Simulated scan of single mutants.
Amino acid sequence: MKKTAIASLLGLAAVSAFAQMSPAGLWKTIDDDSKKEKSLVRITESNGLFSGRIEKLLDPDTKPDTVCEKCTDERKDKPVLGMTILRNLKQNADDKAVYDGGDITDPNNGKVYRARLKPVDGGKKLEMRGYIGPFYRTQVWHRVE
């Protein structure tokens, strides 16, 4: 009986650790240049695809009614608050620690970048990398407990 209880607890711990290594959850975005907190982004999973939307703006310089003037798709002139900025990411078949294949939109300039997410530090941080051709930029986002 005691061995079964211990095995069950270890199994639950493993499931909990795996869940933390998923990009799903609430993340505080940090600007890689200014190091300022920018927003809270909630990443969700549906049918193996991950998407993320801006849930809260944290930068006091950003007005709450800001719209994406420079977006060139269906998000043009739509509010940044509530905007889906991450789309169509899935777990990489070769490297299970990486989620890619989708894109991220920067509402400040309207540009869409190929995206790659990688949970690090036991799932407490998320490396969010945006690519244009061979060039990339990486931000480290922090999980909100």
Rank of each mutant, 00 (worst) to 15 (best):
I30Q: 07
E37I: 09
L10M: 13
K38E: 12
K125P: 03
V15G: 04
Q139S: 13
G102T: 13
L81C: 10
A19Q: 11
G133D: 06
N88Q: 12
M1I: 15
P23M: 04
C68E: 00
D121Y: 05
I104D: 00
R53D: 08
V144W: 03
A93K: 15
A5H: 07
A13D: 11
K70I: 07
A13P: 02
H142L: 10
I30V: 15
F135G: 06
I132K: 09
I54R: 01
I30P: 03
G102K: 02
G123H: 07
Y113V: 03
A97R: 15
T105E: 03
S51C: 07
R53C: 08
P60H: 09
Y136Q: 11
T4N: 08
P134W: 09
L10F: 14
L126S: 03
Y113L: 05
K2G: 08
A19M: 07
G130K: 00
D103Q: 12
D65W: 12
P23S: 04
T105P: 01
K56P: 10
Q20C: 09
R114S: 14
G133H: 10
R143C: 04
A5Y: 09
L117M: 13
R53A: 11
L86H: 00
N108T: 13
M128E: 02
Y113S: 03
A7D: 13
R143M: 09
S22Y: 04
R42C: 09
A13E: 12
L57M: 12
P119V: 01
G25L: 00
K63A: 14
N109L: 08
R143H: 11
K125C: 02
Y131W: 13
V144G: 07
V98W: 03
V80F: 03
K124I: 11
L126T: 00
L12K: 08
G133A: 12
K28Q: 13
G130V: 01
C71V: 04
D106L: 05
F50D: 00
I104S: 01
V15I: 11
R42M: 09
D77L: 11
G110W: 01
L86E: 00
L81E: 03
T4G: 05
C71W: 00
E145F: 09
I6A: 09
V120W: 06
I104Q: 01
T66S: 14
A93W: 14
L117N: 00
K35W: 09
I54Q: 01
V67Y: 05
D103M: 12
D94Y: 13
A17D: 10
Y99E: 03
V112R: 00
N92R: 02
K124E: 15
M1R: 07
L9I: 13
D33M: 09
E145N: 14
E55W: 03
D31G: 05
D94F: 10
F135L: 15
